[in-house]
């Protein structure tokens, strides 16, 4: 499909969509690792539900990206044949499922950003992107409801759960600044009136997260040493292993259809 966009804008949009698609793919993949191993059967179903929504959204974003690129690549080519440096997901999302608290904290930080972010993005002037974002809102609000309730129960549950929750929050906090990362790609898309400038987003996120963490009797980390790099393809060591596992079949059998 040819969209009426100049090359710079097309290129920026493509990059932007990779970020969104990779975020959902990596997060969905991490969540899927719980299937068959969750603390209770109901949670096997709940986490898999979130994983499925994420992979579905990943597919939508990457399909649109491939169309925009218009070089004959499919969403599967993008997912299964790019290497680590070419992936643009947030560092937060590739962190390991060290335990249930890590998974919940990671989801909580991401979904409480997503609820505001996708509401904004649903107003973007590039209709196909607005459409996908619109569909994402309902799912994101369900994910947020789930992980927010768990943050409260882990933080304000037993001493053991409180300690594990605090450790997860402390450890993952350094990846939260990247949620609000912007560079010339964003600037260009804002300039072209495709994206709206979502500066108040960070404060909204911060206020909400503080409210819930406080209610959960958890401390908000004071450490401001933030880590970024995902949007540039500079990842943590975890991504390499994740992709090695995820991509093995596609890479071992080139040109095979599955």
């Amino acid at each position: 499909m040819s969209y009426k966009l100049n090359n710079d804008v097309r290129s920026a949009l493509f990059e932007y969509l990779l970020r969104l698609g990779d975020d959902k793919l990596i997060l969905g993949h991490r969540l899927s690792e719980w299937c068959g191993h969750a603390p209770i059967l109901e949670e096997d179903i709940a986490l898999t539900n979130i994983a499925l929504d994420c992979v579905g959204q990943a597919s939508a974003f990457l399909t649109l990206a491939a169309e925009l690129e218009n070089k004959g690549r499919s969403e599967d080519d993008l997912a299964y044949l790019r290497n680590e440096i070419q992936f643009k997901n947030l560092l937060l999302l590739e962190q390991l499922n060290k335990d249930f608290a890590y998974t919940i904290a990671r989801q909580f930080f991401y979904s409480s950003f997503g609820i505001y972010f996708f509401q904004d993005l649903a107003k973007c002037k590039f209709e196909p992107l607005a459409g996908i974002s619109s569909k994402t809102i309902k799912e994101t609000s369900y994910h947020l409801r789930h992980c927010k309730e768990w943050m409260l129960r882990l933080g304000d549950g037993t001493e053991e759960s409180h300690n594990k929750a605090q450790e997860a929050v402390n450890d993952l906090w350094r990846f939260t600044e990247e949620l609000f990362f912007k560079n010339e790609i964003d600037e260009l898309l804002i300039q072209e009136n495709i994206l709206i400038d979502s500066n108040p987003l960070k404060q909204k996120w911060r206020d909400y997260v503080e409210e819930i963490l406080t209610q959960a009797t958890l401390q908000i980390p004071q450490n401001e040493n933030m880590q970024i790099g995902g949007r540039h393809g500079i990842h943590t060591e975890h991504l390499g292993h994740l992709l090695a596992e995820m991509q093995i079949l596609a890479r071992s059998y080139p040109n095979a259809k599955w």
Partner: peptide
């Protein structure tokens, strides 16, 4: 491994 999670939910409730 999930025992602490289930216990936390009960304690909260």
């Amino acid at each position: 491994n999930g025992r602490w999670v289930r216990e936390a939910a009960i304690a909260y409730s």
